[in-house]
């Protein structure tokens, strides 16, 4: 799960940008907006446990 997280985020980014281009050219702006929003939320759900782990480790490591 170390480097693959970066590759997954990159893959979602590329996918969403391609999808948005396609949807924009077929005159469906709102769908393009929705797909980019969905991509963002998906990546957020991947990263959220990592952020939580980061702050928990910092608190217990530095006795904050």
């Amino acid at each position: 799960m170390e480097v693959s997280l970066l590759f997954k985020i990159g893959a979602v980014g590329i996918l969403v940008s391609v999808l948005c281009q396609i949807l924009k050219h077929s005159q469906r702006e709102e769908l393009a907006f929705l797909t980019s929003l969905a991509g963002l939320i998906l990546v957020l759900f991947w990263i959220l446990p990592y952020i939580y782990d980061l702050f928990r480790t910092i608190q217990e490591l530095f006795a904050l």
Partner: peptide, 26 residues
């Protein structure tokens, strides 16, 4: 990856730098 995505999707480059920073911290 961040540079590659900065042109089309800038918000993903922020996610990438956050993820890389967190992985290095671990």
């Amino acid at each position: 990856l961040g540079l590659f995505l900065k042109g089309t999707r800038p918000e993903y480059s922020v996610y990438l730098s956050l993820a890389a920073g967190i992985l290095i911290f671990f």
